[in-house]
Design a protein around this nucleic acid. Structure first.
Lengths: 198, 198, 198, 198
DNA sequence: TATGAATGAGCCTTCATTCAT
DNA sequence: CATGAATGAAGGCTCATTCAT
């Protein structure tokens, strides 16, 4: 792929993100995205096989970027407790600089369906949860965490973090760092071993 | 409103719920809903002023029913701790018998927008969170709960409960009761006062 | 036809007139007319075979009433000159008390078409012109009028009178009597024999 | 705008004119216009923002063309009497070559309404009358015309000319030139100063 | 005599996509 | 590499009419 091709694709993906965030998945027609990008509608058709491929690229780009951003924070921690805190903090940190694209991706994941009516991004949506399940399980095996159901906790943590994005989108003044610390405390208390009274 | 009117409206609302759950908000055209209900498209137009009114009725019907279901459980509790547990348990209990309609309502709330492009059900969506904030605050004033940010906790609890619905929809074998008890424990630990060591 | 039937028909015809005048022929659906009459839509279907028949009745009722109103004024005149003035004055006089229904009828005559796309009320619309042609021709034979083309003059007089209605509808403050006198003078000058210079 | 664009727009405008003239404003759906133009319905949507814009273009195109046609004839005259005759003759002359489009425009002007239910082309329709009022007033000031109400006369002249179009449409054999000369004589007599007997 | 209920046809518009240039 | 032009399908909605009650 040529440089100019890649640039165009990035431009279009950016316009798609802006559009989805601004007007929602349902109103994000190719016409509107093209308008946002200030290009002709057929440029999109030229660079992407169809609308589905464009949306897939949007999701892939953001999810990969997000995962790459988080990796170093997680690898810097040696304990499960530390990794859980780092997980929450780094997701929130990424949010801070990527509100629009995360909102867009959330919209797309929830709404985009195949011709059979079934969700398309279910697997990719489930991946972070699975990763979190692993993290929690290892913490339990190391004796750091209490004996909760790791799937429920992984779902709840993921949902809790997503809630921060939703809340921030609705209340622009929100202090995301403080929100993150609340979550760290909350899930710290929820996961740690009960103190022995001795 | 005549009896037959009410019956038709219920039937159409039911068909809308089935359709939205099956194929998603975006694909839920009046044509598809009519097909699901095995009636002509214009019957819907006859009984509802427009699509918006139909969707509003879907949301209103379910939300009201849900709130009514939960009230007695909450009023039976005297402590904030008890009310929080009852809140979680009763929401899960309602879920158990109303999966389709709750999935549908969730889809509609997230996606439905007015002509201005802004969400329509934002307020109705925020109401349960606000209620929960009140509950948590009263628990803090009573000294039962620790000094968390009640907004963050309310969001997280709501999101955590919604996560149960999502997970159940994706994994039909899930034991919702067990899931609920995990949440009760989780948020119990997250809210209670730290034990004094003394 | 029973008395109650006749009353209902009159009521519906009245509602049709109000509606057509208020929102125009194109927007005058049976639903709107029923709403205006504060009755159910099917009452109209019960009393009139279809929409066409209703509109025909509207036109017929008004045109007949109008003709009946004018007859005595015309018959009171012995000269063609007098009859022409009486014709203009009495049409304007009728207008004064029947603005709404005349506007409605004008709308209907111009717009209503058969399934073949051809106007339906062409003949009825032409009748007053034909009558006027007779009047003018008799005035010519009597030597009162100059040798104009009676068809052109009849058309122009008719159009001129209709213009008063249009103008009045657009400028509610108009003094119709004065307008009528202007027309009487105008068409008096236009029809009379040139003065011989001798 | 590209050449092909302009050609298509002209073609569609032409088809709209043909359709409106043939079946009337009310039956002139985009489907019918497209059929008349032997193109797909969505071609119209591609070249015009919506039906309103198409109709506006139809009206604007014809009205502008008409005004441009008439200007030289009016400017060639130095007296008000001459200008009035030229006005009548040139309007009739234009009619002769533009029957269909004038009939269509008349239909549209009378019927087209905005979303508020009010006529859209009222102003454009009133413009020629206003122009005529000016002409008549200047003739009065110059002492050429008698002391009639210029508004009534302008309305009546306009209506009289429109009557020629209506009559011609209903009676295709009509000699428009002769019709025009009758009008010139008619309104000449109606406007001129009464002869002094001296 | 009246009407609530239902319906198919048609309305204008938006859409993703294709194609020739 | 880009795009103007075109299109069929589908969208939500209104309409006049029919029918059973």
């Amino acid at each position: 792929m040529s440089f100019i091709q890649a640039a165009r694709r990035r431009q279009i993906i950016g316009a798609a993100i802006e559009t989805v965030t601004a007007v929602g998945y349902g109103q994000s027609s190719l016409a509107r995205i093209a308008e946002q990008a200030e290009i002709s509608k057929s440029v999109i058709s030229y660079h992407f096989a169809n609308k589905d491929e464009l949306l897939e690229q949007v999701v892939a780009q953001v999810m990969d970027d997000w995962a790459a951003f988080m990796r170093p924070f997680l690898e810097a921690e040696s304990t499960a407790t530390g990794r859980l805190s780092a997980y929450i903090r780094s997701r929130l940190a990424y949010m801070r600089d990527n509100q629009t694209r995360l909102v867009a991706v959330a919209e797309i994941i929830v709404n985009h369906r195949g011709p059979d009516g079934r969700p398309v991004f279910a697997e990719r949506d489930a991946a972070p949860v699975a990763e979190l399940v692993e993290l929690l399980r290892s913490g339990q095996q190391a004796g750091e965490f209490r004996g909760f159901d790791p799937v429920v906790l992984a779902m709840t943590i993921t949902q809790g973090i997503d809630g921060a994005l939703t809340y921030w989108a609705d209340h622009p003044g929100t202090d995301l760092t403080a929100y993150g610390e609340e979550l760290v405390t909350l899930f710290g208390l929820a996961t740690q071993q009960p103190r022995s009274i001795s």
